[in-house]
Structures are given as C-alpha cells and as structure tokens.
Design a protein around this nucleic acid. Structure first.
Lengths: 203, 203
DNA sequence: GTCTATACGCAGATAGAC
DNA sequence: GTCTATCTGCGTATAGAC
C-alpha cells in the first residue's frame, strides 16, 4: 500500500520535526517520536534505519527552510537597503512561525557540527557573501554608505533578529508578556533593526 | 580527609562544567564526567546525588558568571554610553574566554526552562531594566537620545555581541578563519557594535 | 571516602511472525 | 508493511566491601 507508506513516513517525519525541535538530537528518543507519530519504534527504524539518519533528514530540511528564502533575496536584484528590509521581514515571519528553529540549528551547529558542514556547500555561502560584498563596494564608490564586510552585516542583521527569539522563554517571563504580546514585540522590532543597520551604514 | 574531598568534588565540578558545556544536559553522561574528573560514576553520585543536581550547580554558576558582571555595570553610576561600552567590552571578553557559554545557556533556557526560572529572581532583572529605563528617560528629557525600551536596548546589544559566537563554528568554516582570527573579528566588532547602537540612539 | 559490583530501566536496533 | 518479541548496551543510581 504505497499510500499508507507515504502517510506513515510523513507522520514520522512530522513527529520527528516536532520532537527534535523541542528536545534536540540528544534529548529526543525514538520512542517519543514513534508515539507522537502514532506508530512504533520499529516503524521509525524501518523507514529511516537509525535515529541519526532521521535527524539528518529533519535538520537539513529545517536548515534549508530557513536559509533558502534568504539566499533567494541575496541573489535577487533588489537594492542593498531593500535586501536588508526583506531579510529582516522574512526572518521575523519565519521566527514567529517556528520559534524553536534557531535554538535547534545553533545548538546542532555547536554540538554536532559535522552534520551541518557536510551539507553546507549546497548553499554556497561564500558566493552569497561575495554578491553582497560587491553590492556594498558599488554603494561605497557612489558615496552613499560606509565600508563594511558582508559577513559583519549578515551577523549584525541575524543577531538583532534572532537573539530575541533565543531568549524568548526568559524575556517573556521577565516582561510578563504572553506569547502574542511577545510576537508583537518582535514585529515592532523590524523597523528598529532596519533603521539601526541603515543608520550605521549611512555616511 | 576534608582536603581530598575538596579536591575530588572540585575536580568533578570542573569536569562537569567542561562536559555540560560541550554536550548539554541531555548529551552529557555521568560516566564521561567521571572519566574527565579522573574518578568514578559512584563518586559523582556520592557528591551530587544525581546528574540533574550536578547540572543545576554547574548551570547556575555559569549563568551567574556571565550576568553578574553585567548586572554590576548596570547598577553602577556610569553614563548610559559608558555602560553600553563596558557591557560590550565585558561580553566580548567573556565570550572569547568561554565560547560555549551562550549555546549552553540559551539551549537550556529553551529546553529545560524551569531550572532557569526558578533561580532567575536572584538577579532581579526587572529592577535592572528599571534602572536603565530611568537613565534613558533622563537622557531623553535632555534631548540627547531618542526613546527606547531598556529591554530592546539590552536585546540589541546582546544580539550583536553574542550571535557571532553562536555561529562561530559555521562562520569560521565559511570564512576559512582560524580560532585566533575569528577572535580578532570579535574584538574588531566591539567598536562597530557600540557605534551602531549609539548612532541609532542619537537624535 | 573510595571502590567494585550490581540493580534496574530504557535507549536504539533487529528478527521473525503475520 | 506492520507488529511483537527480543537483543545488546549504556544510562543513572545504589549497596556493600574495604
């Protein structure tokens, strides 16, 4: 029954996404994933052979999901300022939808780096930075902005947008903010982030 | 032998710090901690009763270690700009020394939040924000800076300084930078961060 | 206080019936 | 393809000898 296979396999993938996001590679167990998917440990191993293989599948899809949109904007022919705005916009939207994504990704980058590195090349990050560097250069020559390295710009934008999500559990507690209120804070920040970055760049 | 006790207990603590930092609560095992400390699983459980208890001890000390310095500066009578500079300075220094600290802390905040919340009050973060809010207000009245919430300022500073450490394994790979070169990038960023923040605040 | 031995459970993974 | 049963190993934790 090819249809049932699809369903079970997809159910496992979906469950794995959820559990790995919440617990990480080490904290998650095949048992919990199976329960969440409404099936058994055997089935998980039948479809994915091992916990690590399942994890790799989930992680790569999450990684791509987050960065593919950004990569597309970088390669587009928007102006530098438009790209910054679009990236902050897209980031914020994705982060509100999947708040666990950054901890998940950053945790695995730091703890099980090999898995990430092995598949990093497909995004060709060096090339993306080169594109931005070129765009910065041409703006600098026009005298509109100051010189900055693309990776510095990238880390600044991502730091400003992602960090508030990373400390969300803590900050919402401190501020006494509900889920919705905190998401609003994130939405409000968008303007501030773009302005902060752009004001710095402006000569 | 009280002296030997001290040594073994301290050795376990030190080993636990190292292993928990690298592997997190879930990824670490008592066996590995014991090996690292040059003792046995039994001894770890003898001194700390359980892995969770040991973790709580390690985590709290790390958490305090990172934030106590910042808290001190916030409560000092430096000007707002000086405080920003000092905090960026202190952060960067601590991050270079203990690059695993942020992943460790942020990961546990998101995965095992209760442990963090239970002991959060001792830092009295609400009060720290209040101090900054007050200082901002007085500057705003003088017309030197624009209005901003203390927590927004805090998240921006921390995001700009901490994020580059979080993606260090990835970025150093992309940039082809050695440990030392990457640390230099972090040091160079200090000026940029302060300027970015301050330029945004300036009216 | 320190070690060895061991209890006990659950992890991931496989075999084999249906 | 799905399930039950089971293997093997390692996890935390404890008991008891020295």
């Amino acid at each position: 029954m090819a249809e049932k296979d699809q369903n079970t396999e997809q159910a496992i993938l979906q469950a794995a996404r959820k559990v790995f996001n919440q617990k990480g590679l080490d904290g998650a167990t095949v048992q919990v994933i199976a329960d969440e998917a409404g099936t058994t440990k055997s089935m998980v191993n039948y479809y994915f052979r091992s916990k690590e293989k399942l994890f790799a599948a989930v992680f790569l899809s999450a990684f791509r999901h987050f960065f593919s949109g950004i990569a597309a904007f970088i390669q587009s022919d928007f102006s530098l300022k438009e790209k910054i705005e679009k990236i902050v916009e897209l980031d914020t939207q994705k982060l509100i939808e999947f708040p666990q994504l950054p901890v998940f990704i950053l945790n695995e980058i730091n703890r099980n780096g090999e898995i990430v590195f092995a598949h990093l090349q497909e995004l060709n990050p060096g090339n993306l930075f080169a594109i931005i560097d070129q765009q910065i250069d041409s703006e600098v020559k026009k005298g509109t902005i100051r010189k900055i390295k693309a990776y510095e710009l990238f880390m600044s934008i991502q730091g400003l947008t992602i960090f508030p999500i990373l400390c969300k559990p803590l900050m919402s507690k401190i501020l006494g903010a509900t889920e919705l209120e905190y998401d609003n804070i994130l939405l409000e920040r968008k303007k501030m982030i773009v302005e902060m970055i752009w004001k710095y760049l402006s000569v």
